[in-house]
Amino acid sequence: MRLTTLTLAMTLAAGTAFANPVVPGDVTYTEYGAVEASLSGAAGDAAEGAKVVSTRSMGNCVACHQVSALDAAFQGNVGPSLDGVGDRWNEAELRGIVADAKMTYEGTMMPSFYKTTGYIRPGDAYTGKAAKGELEPLLSAQQIEDVVAFLMTLKTQ
């Protein structure tokens, strides 16, 4: 009985694209920086995630990371290559790294993609002017899930 209810609940969640995202301030990180549950309540789409990783106006992760599976031009090397990252980390750990890498690596240069407070002189995107009103996180809950789904496909084994 319980199992059935749980399965049903999960199916429902996966089927609803914008089922109640967890807002950035409410995300629970484990001691090691992992985030267990989906931020959007839905599953991620790896193809969308690939787009977020390589597009300048979205995650632009390739500014700092090299990913052989993508043909994005000019991949940077400020961070480690993401090849095989799906072998090195599980889904919850990757979600934590993408949402707020500083919870996993103290003081890392990697930006926090699902955070809205604690910034010094936050700007209004790339205008150089002060931010107006409340900040949006750099990526939405669903975009984080899509990126995590894509990272899970980066396996060498």
Binding site: V62, A63, P111
Partner: peptide, 24 residues
């Protein structure tokens, strides 16, 4: 000081990472 929503200081780019590529 790590300014902005990307929380990057001058040192992050020009002291810790000179010689590396950030995109192109």
């Amino acid at each position: 000081t790590r300014y902005g929503q990307l929380e990057l200081s001058c040192a992050n780019c020009h002291e810790d990472n000179y010689g590396n590529y950030i995109r192109a």
